[in-house]
């Protein structure tokens, strides 16, 4: 199914959870934060948060900045 990931179309498995998505992106154990349809999803809830077609997901991390 297609979701919007960081503003772009992204293909992930039907019924995937945020935990699956993090695995698919190779970001397991990385310092990231996830927003699903404009709401923060705490790390502890990634495994039980299922994605559906058209969901808007933001995955962010810290980079250099002032």
């Amino acid at each position: 199914m297609q979701i919007q990931l960081n503003g772009e179309s992204f293909d992930t498995a039907e019924g995937a959870t945020l935990e699956h998505l993090v695995e698919q992106l190779g970001l397991v154990g990385k310092r990231i934060a996830i927003e699903l349809n404009m709401e923060i999803v705490p790390r502890g809830e990634h495994a039980e948060t299922a994605l559906k077609e058209g969901d808007q997901v933001e995955v962010v991390h810290a980079i250099g900045g002032g």
Binding site: G7, G26, R31, V59, V60, H61, A62, I63, G64, G65
Partner: peptide, 20 residues
Amino acid sequence: VTVAVRRTNIGQNPDEPNLL
């Protein structure tokens, strides 16, 4: 120390070192 928060680069090598 200030940091910025940005989208991860999808498809980029996830093993590259992180600022934190």
